[in-house]
């Protein structure tokens, strides 16, 4: 006892001398400036992330404004029954999952292709210029992208229809036909992100050991074989990390994109409604807290379970490539 008090006193007097002291409070005292420096960030994440996590109780309540998030009366699973029996749950789950799967696959595929091709280019200026041009959409807001899409596809004045009528064909009403959007949405997703993704892959390629390439070349492998048997396999770790991050978000829809490109278009609703747009509409447009909170919690839990399973599988297969 006495010695412990002694070391404690010593560590207060001169924290630098004492490295073996244990105990939570002692550690805080020893590095109090450092822990204080973490406080702003900690407070922010407690307020804006952890308190809302506790707020998921609202999904089991009949919310009213007077009693608020934590005071409203409990109603058990009624909100979930309502959400799952509305017929919407399966539709938005399916849409979110399918769109995101296509987005992810297309994004990775085109990012790899462009990065590999840029890496094999000889002209420095063309290399730089094309990278800059590819990066342009990344800097545009989805509001601006929506304006661009509208200008291409609107029925009366859109570029597509002026070309079609110009060559004597009938105009197409894209905004009232669902089938086109299965292609347009992935297209603009890749359009906006491929500049970013290709830079990511390119930075991985730049880090590769050139001696392996030299050796392959001496052994007579042509450039296509070098890409096929060196570059592509070496990109596997990067791809697994990106795939994992993508799978972790596979139930989290691209709200920005869907809301800006489709908006509240009733005709396209069934084909393009995702969990995020449903939750948003229920909360803001129809003030339906039951539907919105049940849908939101359903999404969060689904995301959490999927990322845990995916990470666990990767961990079992190759520990180094797991996210955590």
């Amino acid at each position: 006892m006495a010695t412990e008090a002694n070391t404690a006193a010593k560590s207060v007097r001169n924290p630098k001398l004492d490295r073996k002291g244990s105990g939570f409070l002692k550690e805080l005292a020893r590095n109090k400036v450092l822990y204080l420096m973490f406080v702003p960030i900690a407070l922010y994440f407690i307020v804006f992330n952890y308190i809302p996590m506790a707020g998921i109780v609202v999904a089991f309540k009949s919310f009213n404004y007077q009693q608020g998030m934590f005071g409203s009366p409990w109603i058990g699973l009624d909100n979930f029954e309502y959400f799952f029996s509305s017929g919407k749950a399966w539709l938005v789950t399916k849409n979110t999952f399918l769109y995101n799967s296509v987005f992810l696959a297309a994004y990775l595929f085109f990012s790899i292709i462009i990065a590999v091709l840029i890496a094999e280019m000889s002209g420095k200026i063309f290399k730089k210029t094309s990278q800059t041009l590819l990066f342009l959409p990344y800097f545009l807001s989805w509001v601006a992208v929506a304006a661009i899409v509208y200008n291409l596809f609107n029925y009366e004045y859109g570029l597509l229809n002026s070309i079609l009528t110009g060559i004597g064909m009938d105009p197409i009403d894209i905004y009232s036909s669902t089938s086109y959007w299965y292609f347009i949405l992935p297209f603009f997703y890749v359009w906006k992100w491929v500049g970013f993704g290709s830079v990511l892959y390119l930075s991985a390629i730049m880090g590769f050991d050139t001696s392996a390439y030299e050796a392959a070349k001496i052994d007579g492998a042509n450039v296509f074989q070098r890409v096929r048997y060196l570059t592509i396999p070496l990109l596997k770790p990067t791809t697994i990390v990106l795939l994992l991050l993508g799978i972790g978000r596979i139930m989290r829809g691209e709200f920005d994109m869907f809301y800006q490109l489709i908006g509240n278009n009733g005709i396209l609703m069934d084909a393009t409604d995702i969990i995020d747009t449903l939750v948003f509409r229920s909360l803001i447009v129809s003030q339906d807290f039951g539907m919105a909170s049940a849908g939101g919690l359903y999404q969060s839990v689904l995301c959490f379970v999927i990322i845990m399973i995916a990470n666990g599988l990767v961990k079992r297969y190759d520990r180094d490539q797991a996210l955590f």
Partner: peptide, 28 residues
Amino acid sequence: DVRYRNALSFFLYFTTLFNGGLVPYYLL
């Protein structure tokens, strides 16, 4: 020398794994 540095990064990282969703955030 910050002994709880890994706990601190997990405290941050966890918010990317799970969140309360739109409704509690909005009401807060």
